[in-house]
Nucleic acid binder design. Sequence first.
DNA 1: CAGCCGTGGGC
DNA 2: TGCCCAAGGCT
Length: 294
Amino acid sequence: MRSRELPPDTVLAWFDVHARDLPWRDPDTSAWGVLVSEIMLQQTPVSRVEPVWLNWMARWPRPSDLAAETQGEVVRAWGKLGYPRRALRLHAAATEIAERHDDVVPSDVDVLLALPGIGAYTARAVAAFAYGQRTPVVDTNVRRVVARAVHGAADAGPPSTTRDLADVAVLLPTTESRAARYSAALMELGAIVCTARSPRCADCPVLSDCAWQRAGRPAYSGPAKPVQRFAGTDRQVRGLLLDVVRGSDRPVERHRLDLVWADAGQRDRCLDSLLVDGLMEQTDEGLFALPGER
DNA sequence: CAGCCGTGGGC
DNA sequence: TGCCCAAGGCT
């Protein structure tokens, strides 16, 4: 099955010319490097990931290198990428890969899915981009591109993994290597042309085939998307607390943490949740440190 | 499955 | 400014 709106030849030719030169796209990048990039890129812009990824790969070129590190060092190297539990999960995944997969990142989607921090998107991204497999890779960019070009809608509706995967599966070219590259191309199209706000339709390779364009670019009519607050949430407070500990080379006193947020109840709750998550530990003297750095 | 989990940049 | 958005995953 071929898509009239997203023809592989057109999309691939565009990608050949316009693909960004990202370090994890270097042909020499290992499957481990691809996996690390995909975890870091979850909900995080490319520009912030690049320097951290370069440092990370120079320091821990194999899963076993990361597995040998303390959790605290890993959380510290994660820096301010956000969602630091990803760092712990990546460390746990590296440990499993080192111990149970002979230090080789699995290529099978179902095996990848069993690793911590790897879900429907990341498993298929690794299978496609590290191992060249033909499998639908569906992220927010792809969902938007398909919603517009194929379905004629301004944006994708609520995500449904099963439906989204089937939706994209029928678009993939038959040839394995072309399919993998096509997946990367759809993501790139969504990232730099078919963007969420003010899409650059004039630069789009499939403008003349686009169903949304054909329909006169109607406004989004689906259900309202839930807006994520941040200011004042536990997420913000956790971030502030962890930042204090992450920025210190020795365990910090409770008083230092009390300074970052006035509401003692919320502060205590967040501190406790950080301890429960394993992002922090308390020393015998009652000081706070990154895990494994007591 | 809806809500939660960081952070910063653009408009 | 406040809001939206950024290569999601987990419970």
